[in-house]
Design a protein around this nucleic acid. Structure first.
Length: 566
RNA sequence: AGGGGCGUCGUCAAGCGGUAAGACACAGGCUUUUGAUGCCUGCAUGCGUAGGUUCGAAUCCUGCCGCCCCUGCCA
């Protein structure tokens, strides 16, 4: 099944949900949830999960909750809750009133645990962490029963209540589910369901000193919220029997089903929260919203649109196979979106002065320029032209190869929306560096076309020197120099694989005056160069900083590259 | 005494017994006042591999091979 507009593609989860619906499970409802742990910023891997969960709910006419999985107060902070909500809203998702926290259910979860204790299905274990590990066995050998496994329900209840009351030291005891220490599935070897932990919780403060573990809290929170389909990533497949076990033992109001899919990996970047946190903490990048990071806030600052990210998530599909998506697909998604939306402007990043010798000394003309050749409704603007202008250094070559169409001595080119100019001679400094080029223009070609019908091979962007606005432009490239930096090789850290050229700051860029009026966060195209966005953090009243989102496709760069450099 | 998953184009990914969708990438061509965009064309006699079942197999069965995950009081 395919919907042309959204690029919607059916996946195996749709198939499974349809089967559940057909079988009449959960009264025919579909209710999903996005369950972030507030211990880091959202990244594009989360976006895949968000699009999946909200998308499924929408497709099946159901609901999707936002639930913060905040069962480990030692790692979680309110700051992260705020950033997650902001990113979610920016991506365009609405969870209505359904904003929940696993911590909302602590009392109910405790009651469920008490029930297990009373039923003889959970016990308090006094083994130390090291002993617990030894008793657990290995992948090849079964574990051994804890010596505390056969305590009476009454004793367990007393101990568990006293755990809650704060009578015991952190880590001195845990509550464990009594399942099977010989299971081939490690998760079923009497998993811990409550631990003693005196840490300040961002919502419940200090009223609890015991906290439920993920396996216990997650599935039961799903059940409490009436979730029908609990979508998670592949590494939780082994947890599913445990997820089901808790649901089966307790009198829960709903029987959710866990379905796993493969998490997103993108080439030339890292996606794990641990690695992202390390890059931020070690100062290797400029915070969680560094434009080179795959975080939602980083992509936003880089100039990626929410539409392009959602589109990307739709195109990559959902399956169970570990894979790595080519970053080129992400770049394609944003180019496709910005090609439609971004107004065009002219900006010269590496200026080279051009003096048009036969142009009147003090004249300034206002030339018409269209804002988007593909969309007449975006209108046009005036661009000032004068005797002295800047063109891109890369657009001039003294000894040009045949395929180089741009400016070179003796050749005529078009200045976009202005005139044809011919390069007559160049000026150099003592080192032989070209410092300026002298040209003549043809007054008959005003607007950019010749009455005699003669053609030129190239059209260059330019900015009049006198009215130019100065700015800093940051050129970003992939953060890592290898496609899969997370693949450990010879024990070297992934941080040694950072691309030293991932950021190139150009501080002497010249912009057409209209660019001084754009707002932060609004994407524009610098003609022939790429899509850019005014930085939302570093631009001040008298200082403009633009971030390059992505270059335009550049066939010439490819040709030049093949010839061995430009 | 191990358990759980996964192998379809360079990269993602449809396919669910009737003869290999689509996207990105790549390569050509047309259009073009952005070497952009747009448009057109090409790109798996083949689905990890070896057998088997069948009129017919990427789809079913069996055996191999390869890759990923699991021994936190993290999620």
């Amino acid at each position: 099944m395919e919907d042309e507009n959204s690029g919607f593609v059916e996946n195996f989860i749709h198939t499974q949900i349809r089967e559940d619906l057909k079988a009449g499970r959960n009264e025919g409802r579909v209710h999903t949830r996005f369950p972030p742990e507030p211990n880091g910023y959202l990244h594009i891997g989360h976006a895949k999960s968000i699009c999946l969960n909200f998308g499924l709910a929408k497709f099946f006419d159901g609901l999707c909750n936002l639930r913060f999985d905040d069962t480990n107060p030692s790692k979680e902070e309110a700051e992260y809750v705020d950033s997650i909500k902001e990113d979610l809203r920016w991506l365009g998702f609405d969870w209505g009133e359904r904003e929940f926290f696993a911590s909302d259910y602590f009392e109910q979860l405790y009651a469920y645990a008490v029930q297990l204790v009373k039923d003889g299905k959970a016990y308090v274990c006094d083994l130390t962490p090291e002993e617990t590990r030894k008793y657990r066995g290995t992948l090849q050998e079964p574990g051994r029963n804890s010596p505390y496994r056969e305590r009476s329900a009454a004793e367990n209840l007393d101990l568990f209540e006293r755990m809650r009351a704060g009578e015991f030291a952190d880590g001195s005891r845990v509550l464990r589910a009594k399942i099977d220490m010989a299971s081939g599935n490690m998760n079923m070897r009497d998993p811990i369901i409550y631990r003693i932990l005196r840490a300040h919780h961002h919502r419940t403060g200090d009223i609890w000193c015991i906290y439920p573990m993920y396996d216990f809290a997650h599935g039961l929170s799903d059940a409490i919220e009436g979730i029908t389909h609990s979508i998670c990533t592949l590494e939780f497949q082994d947890h599913r029997p445990l997820y089901d076990w808790f649901i089966e033992q307790l009198p829960v109001p709903c029987r959710p089903r866990q379905i796993e899919f493969a998490r997103l990996n993108i080439s030339y970047t890292v996606m794990s929260k641990r690695k992202l946190l390390q890059l931020v903490n070690d100062g290797l990048v400029d915070g969680w919203d560094d434009p080179r990071l795959p975080t939602i806030s980083g992509l936003r600052r880089r100039g990626y649109t929410a539409d392009s990210i959602r589109n990307f998530c739709e195109r990559i599909g959902v399956a169970k196979r570990n894979s790595m998506v080519d970053v080129a697909l992400l770049e394609h998604a944003v180019r496709e979106d910005l090609n439609l939306k971004a107004p065009r402007y002219m900006a010269v990043l590496k200026p080279l002065k051009v003096i048009i010798e036969n142009y009147p000394e003090d004249q300034i003309e206002e030339l018409d320029a269209v804002n988007n050749p593909g969309d007449p409704t975006m209108g046009s603007r005036k661009v000032p032209f004068a005797r002295e202008i800047y063109v891109e250094r890369d657009d001039f070559m003294e000894d040009a190869p045949k395929k180089f169409f741009r400016l070179t001595p003796g050749r005529e080119v078009r200045l976009r929306y202005a005139y044809y100019i011919r390069c007559e001679r160049v000026e150099k400094d003592a080192n032989g560096e070209v410092t300026a080029i002298y040209c003549t223009y043809d007054p008959e070609t005003r607007g950019g076309s010749a009455p005699d019908g003669r053609k030129v091979k190239a059209t260059l962007h330019w900015v009049a020197a006198q009215t130019a606005v100065s700015a800093e432009v940051r050129l970003y490239d992939r953060l890592f120099s290898v496609a899969d930096p997370a693949a450990e090789k010879d024990g070297q850290s992934f941080t040694s694989l950072l691309n030293p050229d991932s950021l190139n700051r150009l501080t002497d860029c010249k912009l057409e005056p209209a660019l001084a009026q754009v707002s932060a966060g609004v994407s524009v195209q610098f003609e022939r160069l790429g899509y850019f966005v005014l930085d939302n953090r570093e631009s001040l009243m008298d200082k403009l900083v633009f971030n390059r989102t992505v270059t335009l496709r550049d066939t010439w760069a490819k040709v030049a590259g093949k010839r061995g450099g430009k």
